Amino acid sequence: MKNIFYLFVFSFVVSTTVAQQKAVEYKDGSQVLSGISVKPAKALKGNPGILILPAWMGIQNHEKEVANQLADLGYQTFIADIYGIDQRPASTKEAGAKAGYYKKNISEYQKRIQLALDQLVKQGGNRDAIVVIGYCFGGTGAVEAARTNMKVNGIVSFHGGLGRDESRTIEVIIPKVLVLHGADDNFVPKEEIEKFQAEMRTAKADWQMVYYANAVHAFTEKSAGNDNSKGAAYNEKADKRSWQAMLDFLKEVL
C-alpha cells in the first residue's frame, strides 16, 4: 500500500512539473497550418513567449528539443509551421525549393510568421514580451520579423541568411537583433554580411553579431554531422556558446 502511495505522489509531481506540448492547427486562407505549442509547467513572471522558426525542412526534432528546453526555463513557446500541414518537404531538394519560394516572396513568409506570433499569444504568451528565434531558413525569418518591426522585443538568428532585396526601403528597426554566425559559414557570402551590417547601421538598430570559430552552417544541428568540408556541420562548442548568448539576450530584452 505504501509503494502505491509513493507511486501516486511521484506520478502527480511528474505530471505537474513537465511542460505540456500540443499541436495547434490554424489557417492562412484555405491553407491549414499546424504548429506546436509548449506550455511551461511553471511560467516565468509576465509569461514571456518565444516563437521558434524552423530550418528549411520544417518542424523537426531539433526545434522540438529547443522548445522543450525553453519551456523548462519558464518560457511559453510556439513552433511555427511555415509551409502547411500537407506541404512538408520530403527531401532536401523539396526543402530548398520551398524555402527559396518564401525568400523570393518575402511578404508571404512575413505573413506566416505573423500568424504564428498570433498563435503564440493565443496559447498564453505575453504579447508585450516576445522574442523570435530561428535556425537557418528560420534565422532569415527572424531577421525579417525585425525588418518589418513585428511586435516583438527582439530576434535571434542562428546561422541564418541575411540577404535583403536592395529595392526594399530600409526602415528604422525597433526590436533588438542578435545574429549568431559561424565564422566559416560559406553559405552566407561576405558581401551579404557586409550589406546586412550596413543595413543595421542605417536602420539605427540595436544589433549584435557574434562569430564562432571553426563553425560552418547549421552548427547547432547535431544531425548535420561533424564534417566541416560539407559546408554544414554540428559544432558542440559553438552550439553551447550560442545557446548561452541567446539566454543572456532573453534576460536582457524580456
Rank of each mutant, 00 (worst) to 15 (best):
Q119V: 15
K176W: 00
H159G: 01
E166N: 03
K103S: 07
T77L: 05
Y83S: 15
N61G: 10
R127G: 04
K230L: 05
I113A: 03
R201M: 13
A183I: 09
I50A: 06
V121C: 05
I133Y: 00
Y211R: 06
A215M: 03
Q197K: 14
Y234S: 13
N226V: 11
F137Y: 07
F78G: 12
Y109H: 12
N214M: 04
G160V: 00
K122Y: 02
I130S: 03
S34R: 15
S34Y: 04
G100Q: 11
V32C: 03
G154I: 01
Y212D: 00
T148Q: 06
H62D: 01
G29M: 13
W207F: 12
D81W: 04
E94N: 07
Q21V: 11
E25H: 02
K176A: 07
K240G: 05
I85H: 02
K151T: 13
N3P: 10
A67P: 10
S91L: 11
Q123E: 15
K104A: 14
I113W: 08
K237F: 03
S157G: 04
G225E: 04
S107L: 08
G35I: 08
K195Q: 07
F196H: 03
E94G: 08
V66K: 02
A129H: 15
L70P: 04
P189T: 03
I79A: 09
A97P: 08
S229M: 05
G141R: 00
G231Q: 05
G58P: 15
I133S: 02
L73F: 07
I130W: 02
V143A: 03
D128C: 09
A129I: 06
D206F: 04
V132S: 07
S34K: 14
K230G: 08
A146R: 00
Q208K: 15
V131Q: 04
G160P: 03
A43K: 13
K64E: 08
D81M: 10
V38N: 15
K111W: 01
Q110P: 07
E221A: 06
R201F: 04
L180S: 03
F249E: 00
I79S: 09
Y83C: 14
